[in-house]
């Protein structure tokens, strides 16, 4: 099938390898990948800050781009939640409401798409490392993704998954991390502590934004830990 891949701004700029890995995996599975030039953003920053009109200015462009897409795969659980869960709210009472609902029904986060839509769990990947998994909050609680990434990791040769003792937010939270940097940092420290307790080498996630926050703290505090997106692992063979 033709898969429309949505690459959010921070993946585009900071983590292109994540998007590239997704393209390679989808093509390897025999699908045609398309990637709209624009827009760069799903509109979540304005939405989360309360500026819904301004958010719609961006989001409406994305909706129009995606209106004929067969399926939309989103390279981030958080942007995925924005499009799948919040677009219907954002566009409620506007002429685009029906389109928003239609498009949101065809949106999937990457790991969810592989497992739940394609029924694929084994990509023949190898990653001989101890890892722990961070559930991005929007993936987990808005998109309700829990099993899919774990099933994919189970089939990665050499990968050993050690779960953290608690499921908590990494403290990123988009604009929250800038509005309340000290609370955000404290939350990140708690998260890093939990990850370090597992003695894993890598924190894996389906959300590059969470990983950016975790990695930012790790680098500053020189902790013995690395971060990696699940797609990057799956593309390794």
């Amino acid at each position: 099938m033709t898969v429309t891949l949505f690459i959010p701004c921070f993946v585009d700029l900071l983590y292109p390898q994540v998007g590239i890995a997704m393209v390679k995996i989808l093509e390897k599975l025999g699908h045609k990948v398309e990637c709209p030039d624009s827009p760069a953003c799903c509109g979540q920053p304005a939405f989360n800050t309360g500026y819904w009109d301004e958010s719609r200015d961006v989001a409406v462009k994305l909706l129009e781009q995606l209106k004929d897409a067969e399926v939309v795969v989103i390279a981030s659980g958080s942007c995925g939640a924005m499009m799948k869960v919040f677009y219907p709210d954002l566009f409620a009472g506007t002429p685009h409401h029906a389109l928003a609902r239609q498009v949101s029904g065809r949106c999937f986060e990457f790991s969810q798409f592989l497992v739940d839509q394609l029924g694929v769990t084994d990509l023949g990947a190898q990653f001989p490392h101890r890892v722990t998994f961070h559930d991005g909050c929007h993936s987990l609680r808005e998109m309700r993704i829990h099993a899919a990434p774990r099933r994919l990791m189970q089939r990665v040769q050499g990968l050993e998954l050690i779960e953290m003792k608690q499921t908590v937010c990494c403290g990123f939270g988009g604009t929250f991390s800038a509005k309340f940097p000290m609370i955000s940092t404290a939350m990140g420290e708690v998260k890093c502590g939990l990850a370090l307790d597992t003695s894993a080498e890598y924190v894996v996630s389906c959300d590059s934004s969470c990983l950016m926050h975790i990695q930012g703290l790790i680098d500053r505090q020189k902790k013995p830990l690395k971060t990696i997106h699940l797609a990057e692992i799956l593309a390794q063979s």
Binding site: I7, L13, P16, I20, P181, G216, L217, R220
Partner: peptide, 19 residues
């Protein structure tokens, strides 16, 4: 507000869109 406590990753030499 970010860099006081956290590092920021560099912008990639080739962005996804450029690739």
């Amino acid at each position: 507000v970010w860099t006081k406590t956290r590092d920021l990753p560099p912008i990639a030499r080739q962005s996804f869109k450029e690739w």
